[in-house]
Simulated scan of single mutants.
Amino acid sequence: IAERHRSPFTTVFGSMVADRLADTIAVAIITLATFAMAGPQLMSYLGQDPDRISGILSLLTSPLLWGSIAACTVIAVWLYLHYPDSKAVSSLRNIWKGLWKGFAVITSMRGKWEWFFYTLVLWGCYILGLGCAFMSFPLTAEVITQHGFTALLVCFVFTSLSMLVPSNGGIGPWQWAMIFGLGLYSAGIPGLDKGYMTSFANLALSVQTISSIILGLFTFVWIALDKRSKK
């Protein structure tokens, strides 16, 4: 992209970081709204396994976790203050300036409201796509019938958060998150056992992965065939 548009790489990368940040904000908003609606049911489910809640709380309050974050922050600030002209610090500073320039351009670029609108449309399509997958199979469709749109949002949030775990395209964490989400609503639906939920999660992620591969190949071919002159 930087080569085709003759723009600095760090600036282009900064705009991509801004795009990821917009996705992060979107996930955060959807997550807060979902937990506000489904919080009691989720806590009731977690309450069946006190050890699970204890494990989550111990992780969030771990002195090792927060100590590591504080230590990394102190080291970074110390290096920046004591070696401002070193090659490594200068390189990082230039990278940061480029990233910030790419991010800040969103506030002044033409079409920023269209960008915001398409971000909303994109995440709406993500949710709609998962909803179509749910409605394609009788037992997952029954989840929506009995528990409404909130059940779909809960599964969507869990699978979205699972993408934070380093993995190849979400393989593994995505399925686990989907199984966990469906497990919250499986009690009143005969047949919605772990085997069914696992099969559904594998199939849904496989379709997404294949779609990404096909669209990626199409994009590369389109770029190769695009001979339009660039100003």
Rank of each mutant, 00 (worst) to 15 (best):
I1H: 06
R6A: 12
S7H: 07
F9W: 12
T10I: 00
T10F: 03
T10R: 04
F13C: 08
T24D: 09
A26S: 15
A26F: 08
T31N: 12
M37V: 11
M37Q: 06
P40G: 02
L42I: 14
S44I: 00
D51N: 09
S58G: 11
L60V: 12
S62C: 03
P63F: 11
L64V: 14
I69V: 15
Y80K: 03
Y80L: 04
H82V: 08
Y83H: 12
D85R: 11
D85N: 13
S86A: 10
K97R: 10
L99I: 13
W100A: 01
K101C: 01
V105Y: 03
K112G: 14
W115L: 15
W115H: 09
L122N: 15
W123I: 10
W123M: 08
I127H: 08
L130D: 02
C132Y: 07
V143K: 03
I144D: 00
I144A: 08
Q146C: 02
F149P: 00
C155W: 00
T159Y: 02
T159L: 04
S160K: 05
S162W: 01
M163N: 07
P166N: 02
P173N: 03
W176H: 10
M178V: 13
I179S: 02
A187V: 14
D193M: 06
G195K: 05
G195L: 08
M197Q: 11
M197K: 07
A201N: 03
N202P: 00
A204P: 00
A204T: 05
L205G: 05
S206Y: 00
Q208I: 04
I214L: 14
I214Q: 06
L217E: 04
T219P: 00
L225A: 11
L225T: 06
S229M: 11
K231I: 05
